[in-house]
Design a protein around this nucleic acid. Structure first.
Lengths: 155, 155
DNA sequence: CTTAGTTTGACCTTTATTGACCTTTACTAT
DNA sequence: ATAGTAAAGGTCAATAAAGGTCAAACTAAG
């Protein structure tokens, strides 16, 4: 909410949205200055919100003329998508990762909002988080079954 | 009947009523302070009065800038439909009846084809037919949770 | 007297912020 | 070419700032 990390996240996403190329470049120190925070705060935001898991690539360069470049990688709708997602899930997956993946697919417009809600609910009801490795495996099986249906049948 | 939980419930509902977005956000600690109770009392109210069964979604975030967000899910289809379907399911349901119900909702154009496939798959994977009464009950819980989402969210 | 619902508090987990110290790269003056 | 220095960005651990959990104690209705 009123935390700086969220504000920086929004700022970066807004800039990415305005960019035609889907990429932006800036200096870490400038951004830190703009939001009156320490430079390492920027790294925190990058690692928690712009991970490759969430569909971004971050490139940086140190030294004089250094910079940070953030590139948004659109999830293309293709045959590979199912493989990609399957690989990401593997034979077990945590609650947060599962929810994160579902949200990502929704943001990329590959599944509808109702489908996303439906899947989240199913996972919470049928494979709740009890820390048991059993639950992680069940969750993976369930999620893969569901995505098999959705990614194979055109919207 | 003037217990704190009821008062907090009313307060939250009043705020939800005033909100045009149908959602409100607050800090757990602030609310607790406002009603002079321990913070965990808020969790109690949320879990007993704002469950998804009652048509709410509660999202939270811990850590700095943490918050609790409550969203009221408007009923899209008629309330009767939800009641009807709930009654039909009851505390337990067989495989064939469950599949039949799902198909019926699809034919009535209340859920999409993808949603129907998705639900069938979920039921087959998470509550397969083994003749155990346990399975019949799990299936009912799962199916009701799923329909709660779909019958409450606009297509 | 029993049961369901409520209230409390001790302890836990997650997320964010900050700062000291480290590494890499570019530029400049020998 | 090269050493030195300035100008970036990177890492990591300590601390702060939330919210979550769970069980014990309490209360009210039957």
């Amino acid at each position: 909410m009123a935390n700086i990390s969220d504000i920086i996240e929004q700022y970066i996403k807004a800039r990415l949205g305005r960019s035609n190329s889907g990429a932006i470049v800036f200096r870490r120190s400038e951004l830190a200055e703009k939001f009156s925070c320490v430079p390492s705060q920027i790294n925190y935001v990058l690692s928690t919100r712009f991970s490759s898991n969430r569909g971004y690539i971050v490139e940086t360069r140190r030294g004089g003329g250094g910079f940070i470049r953030i590139i948004r990688i659109p999830l293309e709708e293709s045959e590979d998508l199912l493989d990609l997602v399957y690989e990401k899930i593997g034979d077990q997956i945590g609650m947060n990762e599962a929810i994160g993946l579902i949200r990502h697919l929704f943001e990329e417009d590959i599944i509808t909002r109702r489908e996303a809600h439906l899947m989240e609910t199913v996972i919470e009801v049928a494979a709740p988080d009890h820390g048991h490795p059993e639950a992680r495996r069940n969750r993976a099986v369930l999620l893969k079954s569901m995505l098999m249906v959705l990614l194979r049948h055109k919207k």
